[in-house]
Design a protein around this nucleic acid. Structure first.
Lengths: 351, 351
DNA sequence: TTGTAAGCGTTATCAT
DNA sequence: ATGATAACGCTTACAA
């Protein structure tokens, strides 16, 4: 039997020494601990009257259920761990939607932040130590073998990474499809000389490049393909601008950049050369970042649908947990073209 | 006595049914649970030999200590809850440093994300339900009464908000000091006609405005004070540019914007009017956001020292927890001027 | 050096 | 409708 209710301790905080428990309430009301438990869980049984008394006392004592204890007893936590690079704005947006999505299906999200001092492995292990029932990994870079090992313990959902052959659910947006849509859009505006400013040699950059090439080919524009090396940042822009403007006769009328950041850098570099966008040249980005949304930038770009990806990822995890799904599923989303003001009909006037 | 080790269950995951416990290890090695516990906690006592055997078996069975159970037994969690608006890049940066800072002093950070569906109150209650021993609130907007109520239960640290009269630690950067430094910098470059593009009527905007006025006054430049209404976004820029350029004779040679975003908007608006920065006009921002760091923007701005704020916040919490500090402390940091390329000597040439 | 046993605050299965 | 009582996995005096 617990002693008297502890009202704060020497430091003034109840801190670790959680004071009021179900037992206290039970004692005070004169019923059993079990009954109190039932009432809090909302199971049928207890009479309306006791329920009322218990709730009143609980309230009066500022009772808060001890989740830790409950978790120990229940064999479920209803926790979904989400590993993220918190500095990544795109991740942040997804996380936001994930907590909402999890909420609606009765789960809670525990965040694990990857930082220079907390590598992926450590973060995931911590998440598992918290007894998360599933983990959603945003942009994981761990070895497939490691992912596979974790997937033996809990359902694992990888977001934004192409992965196959292991029992891990995948949610991602189809980069090559997104690029394809961009090219279609430009072709629809009458462009033919459409160049691509690449995003380096990583897998994402390669996917986008492939999408560009494929789309150009589909439109019979192979001869106009022009690939300029870039690096996902604005640093590559000045040089890229030089290259793009090098041959006046064959100058592209539109440039598809691998992401928003390099697109914005390019716009700036072009402006310095007196090239107006979209008057002289149309420019597109990728990601629909806040940068693209700035009023004076207003960049045509591609959204990777963070909300949809977030919903799908949570749904994937919950299907494994609640619906006994056992086969891995891979969801490849169709990115959404966001037309803004940096693209216009070829030869069109600046707006 | 626990039954046989459960090797996965019907769903293929050990999921909720955590299988291997200290008891299993103890059984297999032929020692007691308590001994195993001691070994895992690294307390002196167990012989090197048993230690070795226990560790070996633990490893073999893939044992992972059940933190939940430990927490229940220990009366401490060593958890610090951090409430954040995850979409806020500045918050993200601080969070990153916080997890590192907490790590070095033996604490772990639990993130609580404020979102449209998870208001502050709910997030903080959840953090407390997780048995966090202290909470760090980034940019809290809750009523002081509420903060006070929470501060009775656990140490509360508010970051980035001016607060007084309640038992809550405060960490923030001195906005008016930051503005002051900016004005000093410009005056040092020979500027006298220094205008201010405001950040609206909220408390932060007001603090920055006050800092500007005070600094101008200190330099005896009251007559050159020019305040233009802004709103922390780039939307206010075009109109502000009009206003600033309205009186050619009295046109300012420098503009101190309330944040990076409006500064960048202003730069763009000025560029459209043929005004070069910093050739014709120097511009400064505030926040040292990624926007300011873009190579082609390279904006002179003010850093709010996220790392330092993060460290101080964690230290504040830990002092309460470990050093029995009981009086609230308020840390006002000195922001750091970051000189880049948008400021130059008055009448100086563009670079 | 190692073992025993009593908690920690819940949940859940029986009884009553 | 309510109450004992045994888990849950770990920590920690206290014994041996």
């Amino acid at each position: 039997m617990p002693g008297a209710i502890m009202v704060g301790h020497e430091r003034g905080f109840m801190a670790a020494g959680q004071s009021v428990t179900m037992q206290h309430i039970a004692d005070k009301v004169g019923v059993s601990k079990a009954l109190v438990s039932m009432i809090f869980r909302g199971v049928p049984g207890p009479s309306a009257e006791t329920k009322e008394r218990v709730l009143a006392v609980a309230d009066e004592l500022h009772y808060r259920p001890n989740r830790t204890a409950a978790l120990l007893s229940l064999r479920r936590t209803h926790l979904i761990g989400v590993m993220t690079d918190i500095r990544n704005a795109f991740h942040a947006e997804m996380v936001e939607h994930m907590v909402a999505a999890a909420d609606t299906v009765g789960y809670e999200v525990v965040l694990g932040a990857v930082t220079p001092t907390h590598p992926e492995v450590k973060v995931i292990e911590t998440l598992l130590d918290f007894r998360c029932e599933a983990v959603v990994l945003l942009g994981p870079e761990a070895d497939p073998e490691l992912l596979e090992a974790w997937s033996k313990r809990v359902p694992v959902v990888a977001v934004g990474r192409r992965l196959s052959g292991i029992d891990v659910d995948v949610v991602r947006a189809g980069d090559s499809r997104g690029m394809s849509d961009v090219v279609d859009h430009l072709v629809g505006l009458g462009h033919r000389r459409i160049a691509h400013l690449t995003g380096g040699t990583g897998s994402i950059g390669r996917d986008r490049l492939a999408g560009y090439r494929r789309a150009m080919h589909r439109h019979g524009l192979d001869e106009f393909v022009q690939v300029v090396d870039g690096d996902f940042s604005e640093h590559c822009a000045p040089r890229a601008a030089m290259t793009l403007l090098a041959t006046p006769g064959a100058r592209p009328t539109a440039v598809v950049a691998a992401n928003d950041r390099s697109a914005v850098g390019l716009m700036d570099a072009l402006a310095r050369q007196g090239i107006s966008v979209p008057g002289d040249m149309s420019i597109t980005g990728y990601d629909d970042s806040t940068l693209a949304r700035l009023a004076h930038i207003d960049l045509t770009t591609v959204s990777q649908e963070p909300k949809v990806q977030a919903d799908r990822a949570i749904r994937s995890a919950v299907e494994r947990l609640d619906d006994e799904r056992t086969e891995p599923v891979s969801t490849v989303l169709r990115p959404r073209l966001v037309v803004r003001r940096t693209t216009a009909a070829v030869g069109g006037s600046p707006c």
